[in-house]
Amino acid sequence: MTTTGTNDLGGFLRTRRERLTPDAAGIAPGLSHRRVPGLRREELAELAGVSVGYYTRLEQGASSSASPAVIDALAAALRLDRAEHEHLRILAAPGRPSPSRSRRSRLRPSVRDLLAAIPGTPAIVIDHRADVLGWNRLGHALLAGHLDADAPDAQIRPNIARMLFLDPHHRALHHDWSAKAQVTVAALHHASARHPADTALERRIGELASRSPEFARMWARRPVRICSYHVRELRHPLIGRVTLANETLTLPDDDQQIGLFHARPGTPDADALTLLAQSLDRRPAPESTPQKENTR
């Protein structure tokens, strides 16, 4: 299954054209029968002010780039939101130059020290492939207590997307699994557009698409969503149901993100995190020997 690097621009345009109804686009329904609810190519081309032939070449992959003016016109005609518009610009960039990102991401020692410096807040660091590069003790206990604490240092790292779709323990953690899954797939789509030469990312997406029909269906819809804040309701095996704010901070230059999970002070959710932290204090310190991910 081809997942990235082949007519991403055309595929994205097609999904958005098929999503937009004539009524939403301000087009009279007409008398002819429609086989699909979305716009026809000629209707979108007219709305965007381009020729039908040119738009067809874009959608079919015969043209892999378009001018900024055409992209802006298409975005307006398709009623794209800001994140989708930016995604379309990335896909249409001439040549889409990108250095290969297949090399293994590394966590800077200063970021590792930062994780340890916030022991009272669950924290995790991932790269653009959703590979876990590090977590503090509370972050590990909250999100992946069934995995070895040293797993991010292993040769095979935990991967948030892989855990979400293929690991039943992690899947059960999320009360609204579908919402979390869609955000994760959207993030991988965004990463794939920005790093088309990343073969490691392509292999990860291919594995998920072949092993999870749910992932394959979500991926085919080409979701795009960029959001740094969510409210997560988790069902934790030790502390029960807990609702936490999830803030995502992007690290400059490293293409990595820190995820922080926190609760409002004085709430039952904050008490639950305190209880989880206290349970860690009663456990023996983990061994430092790197372990492999056990979600295969």
Rank of each mutant, 00 (worst) to 15 (best):
A69H: 08
I160H: 00
R235V: 10
A220R: 08
G206M: 02
A191H: 03
D8S: 08
G61F: 08
S102D: 14
S212N: 01
A77Q: 08
S279V: 12
L91I: 07
A83T: 11
P68F: 13
H128R: 11
L9C: 13
G11T: 09
E207H: 08
A154F: 00
L188E: 03
P252D: 07
K180A: 14
L114S: 03
A263R: 14
P109Q: 11
T289R: 13
S65C: 02
L143H: 12
V52I: 14
T4D: 10
S67F: 15
T6F: 09
D198K: 09
D281P: 05
Q60A: 13
P152Y: 09
P237S: 04
L115M: 11
G240N: 13
L280S: 04
D167L: 10
T15N: 12
T15A: 10
H262G: 03
H170F: 13
G5M: 05
L249V: 13
D167N: 09
P237G: 05
R17Y: 07
S64E: 13
K180H: 08
S288M: 10
D148G: 15
R34C: 05
A154C: 03
K292Y: 00
R106F: 08
T15K: 10
T295E: 12
R108M: 00
L147F: 06
P265S: 05
G10M: 10
D131F: 13
S288P: 01
S65A: 15
Q291W: 00
R101E: 12
L74C: 11
H146A: 08
A181V: 02
L276A: 00
A130L: 15
V50A: 03
T6D: 14
S105R: 10
P252W: 00
F215V: 09
S288Y: 06
H85N: 02
L107A: 05
D150W: 04
R112M: 01
P94S: 04
V50C: 15
A245S: 15
L249E: 03
R296G: 04
R103S: 03
P119G: 08
T6A: 09
P29T: 10
A117D: 11
Q291I: 02
S105A: 14
P122N: 09
R40L: 02
L164R: 07
L142V: 07
A187H: 13
E46N: 01
H262L: 06
M218A: 15
L58E: 00
